[in-house]
Every structure is written in structure tokens, then in C-alpha cells.
Design a protein around this nucleic acid. Structure first.
Length: 220
DNA sequence: TTGTGTTTTACGACCTCC
DNA sequence: GGAGGTCGTAAAACACAA
């Protein structure tokens, strides 16, 4: 086995920070890895991999805090800052770089999650709005239907009272016909009420109640 | 204690920029 | 071509229920 300069540095660091790195004393029998992967350059440099000098170890709270503070300042890591941080924390510059890479990845995931939640909540609001508007439309259709029925009832009463009165001729409702509804044919089940509306003049906006009144005015 | 899911550390492959 | 980025993933470390 031929340790690299980096490995010597790591060995030195592991003496200074024994709780950061675990020095693996070469053993006759080493627990096999759970999953196979290509040998890393470090493992290759260290020999056959089974004698790899260092075991992955969590960073200390202090190191983590310093790295977090540094990450808050700037998400990117210039080599000067990397070396400085590594020296301050007693870490390999490569470790600092990797930590920043992973931290950026976590930050990105968090940001995506936040964006997703924001979009989801605004989507939910739109769905609620849609339901509200749909129920308002239903209510208005019901009102319109009732009004039409009332009109028809009145018209029939007028016609029945005096067959030659001017009122009846102006309304011009005949039994057995649906001409009262203009060109719109209404089936018995009322399905065609969906289409039984009079167009509102172009470029004019009216709310539900105004629209209702407008429809009644057109009918009369 | 152990099985299992999650988080953290580390790396290889690939890409971009200077 | 090298430095440093992202992305995907292996594997160690850790948390926790059963």
C-alpha cells in the first residue's frame, strides 16, 4: 500500500481530531460492504481497498455550525475560502468541497419543496373558487328557471282571461308551443336551460344579479 | 437486538466555463 | 485541460419501531 500525500494529511488530522476520523487499523477480516461500487481513487491509492485508512464520520457540531454559517454567507466556495475553512476546521479541503456540494443539493431540494407547496396551495385556492362559482351558476340557473315558469304562468293567465286583448298578442304565447322562449327549444327535463340565455352586449361586464335582470328585461 | 427507513458523507460521471 | 459545478448513488451513520 502506498498512502498519498492527502492520506498523510488525513492521518495527521485524525490525530488532532480523533472524533472526526476513525483510524482503521488494518485487520485480517473486514466486514464486507453492503453494496458494491467502483473503487474510489483514494481506496485505489491506499491499496486494495480493504485497508482503506479512513472511515466516514459525521462532522462535529462545531464544524457543522461553521460550515452552515459560511454557507449562509455564500453558497459557492472559492478555493481560497475552501482552504481557509478547511484549515480552521481541521478538515481536508476536499471534505469542505463535498460538504458544500451536498449542502447545495439539500438547499435546492428544500427550495423545490417550498415552491411545490406554494403552487399546491394556490392551486387548492383556485379549486375552491371554482366550486364556489359553479354553485353560484347553479343557483342563478335555478332562479332563471323559476322566473321563466312564473312568466309562462302569467302569460297563460292573461291569455285565458281575454283572448283578444293587446297584452296577449304582444306576448304571443300559444299553447302547445315553446315560442315563448324565442329560438330556444326547452326539453321537458330542462336540460336545454344551459343554452337558454340571451347574449349580453359586447364589451359589457355584468355580475350575476345584473345578468339575471338583463335576461328578464330581454324576455319582456 | 434487529430490521428498516432516513440522513449524511463521499465519489464517479458528466458538463460548463475560462 | 483543469477547476468547480450538478446529478445520481453507494455506503456509513443514525433513528426508531417491533
Amino acid at each position: 500500500m502506498n498512502p498519498t500525500a492527502s492520506d498523510h494529511n488525513m492521518a495527521f488530522i485524525s490525530q488532532l481530531y480523533p472524533d472526526v476520523y476513525t483510524h482503521i487499523v488494518p485487520q485480517g477480516k473486514v466486514k464486507p460492504p453492503k453494496r458494491r461500487r467502483k473503487k474510489s481513487k483514494r481506496a485505489v491509492a491506499a491499496g486494495d481497498g480493504s485497508n482503506c485508512l479512513f472511515k466516514k464520520r459525521k462532522l462535529t457540531d462545531e464544524q457543522m455550525n461553521m460550515l452552515e454559517m459560511s454557507f449562509c454567507d455564500e453558497h459557492k466556495l472559492e478555493s481560497e475560502r475552501k482552504d481557509k475553512l478547511a484549515a480552521e476546521l481541521g478538515l481536508d479541503p476536499r471534505q469542505v468541497a463535498v460538504w458544500f456540494q451536498n449542502r447545495r443539493a439539500r438547499w435546492k431540494n428544500k427550495r423545490l419543496e417550498d415552491e411545490y407547496n406554494q403552487l399546491k396551495s394556490s392551486h387548492d385556492n383556485v379549486v375552491v373558487d371554482k366550486c364556489r362559482l359553479e354553485s353560484e351558476v347553479l343557483q342563478l340557473k335555478e332562479q332563471l328557471f323559476d322566473a321563466e315558469r312564473e312568466i309562462q304562468r302569467l302569460a297563460e293567465r292573461v291569455e285565458g282571461g281575454s283572448s283578444n286583448s293587446p297584452v296577449s298578442s304582444s306576448v304571443s304565447v300559444e299553447h302547445n308551443e315553446t315560442s315563448f322562449f324565442g329560438d330556444y327549444k326547452v326539453e321537458e327535463d330542462g336540460d336545454d336551460y344551459d343554452n337558454m340565455v340571451y347574449p349580453v352586449p359586447e364589451n359589457s361586464y355584468i355580475d350575476g344579479e345584473e345578468w339575471m335582470n338583463y335576461q328578464l328585461n330581454v324576455i319582456f
